[in-house]
Design a binder for these strands. Structure first.
Lengths: 350, 350
DNA sequence: GTGAAAGCGCTAACAT
DNA sequence: ATGTTAGCGCTTTCAC
């Protein structure tokens, strides 16, 4: 690959001049600029970004760490971030933090951070792993003085920029929809309430119920975890007594939703004929359900876009930014079949 | 961020020695190595990959260009490629070639190539865009003497390494399944036969039918395109006459499948009660169908993994490789509801 | 086994 | 407006 030197030779100018026309930082006469541009095209010259980065100590590259980009939410986030980054002349390196079978999760996290550090990314978009010490991870990066924006999962007591959906509002949207469909005995199935997100969603449920004047029954709040099998077992138990059965169920995340649906099936319950259902978070391709499931969808692309934009503001030291910026976006309701009134249940396929 | 020089100072050795312990290319005494390692940890030093790349002109970075990573097939491919790359110490930059609304497709392609060239990626995994001149793109890269492996979509008359599914076999698997379910009048809905892949799948259909001794009726081969709406219109027309209606339909790609399913609905046909259905390629999250759709699934992760591995073989000049390597992987059948016998159609939901 | 030094390709400060 | 040059952080030859 040709270097700037060769371009200079071919154009009959100095390397400085070539650099000047490339960066545009210093004016160059029409005549020489033309010569240089011709030489560039003739040689099929592409500026060596590596050398430039070394010189300027600016790689114009961002990193994004997601648990698993085969989970449909994340590619959208990445795409949003990539678009925002490219708009401002930055590239994006995406890496998966979930174990691919070999490494310890903790170890892998460190490796990835180290990788991105070595690559000299100028900022990191981070979806913290559901690992033991997320706080440790983050403060380690913050220590390195490389800007970080957290998305989706927000660490509990670390002051860090973040972009995510408004959990409380999102859950409320879902529950309010169920209420508007005429259901009153609505059960909530949550993941571990140790997670901030989950607590937020629980709060949204409470608010929606209270706003509708429906008393919140503690017996209808079922705390599960993120493993579908466990949740299914929990729900089977709760659903066993027909008389105590809720009219509708709202679940606060994808894996939990799968557990609930499995329990419905195991109990011989059909949706929405026997029980209505809605959930926070889109389900994955691998689980094609019918009736289609009413879902509170996160604005994944926007989350990525806004996060990258904020990160770049930090990197480029945009003036007048608050110390810690927290962006909360609004989720959208996708009404599908599972939350319909029983009498409106589709009688046929497709 | 500390540099190798600071490490050397702290450790009381020369930068050369530090470099030697880092790369391991030159033996260093136990004593000094320990000192160096201590200094590295103490300073939280991370080797500057940018500088190393400049010196060695090896970035240990691969690029992958996919049309749109929010299409579920591609994240899996990328993940496979990332895993293979990381196993051999390489990083991966993924970029989307589909227009995000602003740029011309052709232009964007060039930009991306230019971007990756500037980043000095050592090899490119390429899913060619369904653009006018894929051949132009590729030969331009090949000219630059940077190794390329094509995946998924293989250009027609360019000698280039490639990894993809065996289209003919994949289609045959799907059609044979329908035959094994007892259907004989099986229609085929294809995308544009200008595409090599589509022609391969047509061939697979023919073979499967012939092997089963079923005469291929030209009137049951419906050539559509990649837009669901068009395909739906085509199929509505074909399905209008009940007497001429096939017992089953196989479609050769995702968008086409959506068109077919839409036509079924429009014609009041239920699957599998009125007509059986199977397709090549998994459908996306956004289209939650019931009955669930029998699908011939591509080994997406493996395609990515194998492609990256092959690319790295090229980059590292592994001996004894053929001039052009063509890897064809086998697809898998996922039998779901849409291809069942009518009498076995599920009578209830979920 | 260890260190000194050249140089990868570029930018930017400086000299002209 | 143009050219010259130091130096970004590292690897690697080559002395020692």
């Amino acid at each position: 690959m040709p270097s700037i030197k060769e371009v200079a030779e071919v154009a009959g100018v100095s390397v400085g001049t070539v650099s000047h026309v490339i960066t545009g930082s210093v004016p160059v006469s029409e005549e020489l600029r033309l010569k240089v541009q011709t030489a560039i095209r003739g040689l099929n010259y592409h500026p060596n970004h590596v050398a430039r980065s070394l010189k300027t100590s600016k790689t114009r590259t961002l990193g994004i760490i997601v648990p698993d980009m085969t989970i449909s939410f994340f590619p959208q986030v990445i795409r949003g971030a990539e678009t925002a980054a490219r708009k401002r002349g930055y590239a994006l390196i995406a890496v998966n933090s979930d174990d691919d079978g070999e490494r310890q999760k903790e170890l892998l996290q460190k490796e990835l951070l180290s990788l991105l550090r070595s690559q000299r990314v100028q900022g990191i978009l981070l979806v913290i792993a559901a690992a033991p010490t997320p706080i440790g991870q983050i403060s380690r990066i913050l220590d390195a003085e490389i800007p970080v924006v957290c998305l989706d999962r927000i660490p509990d007591r670390v002051p860090v920029d973040s972009v995510s959906v408004d959990d409380s509002e999102a859950a409320a949207i879902g529950v309010e929809h169920l209420i508007s469909m005429g259901f009153r005995r609505i059960a909530l199935v949550t993941g571990p309430l140790a997670l901030k997100n989950e607590r937020g969603r629980l709060q949204g449920y409470r608010q929606a119920m209270q706003r509708a004047g429906i008393p919140v029954e503690q017996s209808l709040i079922w705390q599960g975890n993120l493993r579908a099998a466990d949740v299914a077992a929990l729900c089977r138990e709760k659903l066993a007594v027909a008389s105590a059965r809720p009219e509708a169920v709202f679940s606060t995340n994808g894996p939990t939703a799968l557990g609930v649906l499995r329990a419905f099936r195991d109990c011989g319950l059909s949706t929405p004929r026997d029980i209505a259902f809605a959930t926070f978070d889109e389900l994955t391709v691998d689980d094609l359900f019918f009736p289609s499931v009413t879902t509170v969808v996160q604005p994944a692309y926007d989350i990525g876009f806004r996060a990258a934009d904020l990160l770049l503001d930090r990197i480029e030291r945009v003036e007048g930014l608050a110390d810690t910026i927290t962006i909360r976006l609004t989720a959208t309701l996708k009404v599908r079949d599972s939350s319909q009134r029983p009498e409106r249940a589709l009688p046929n396929f497709l």
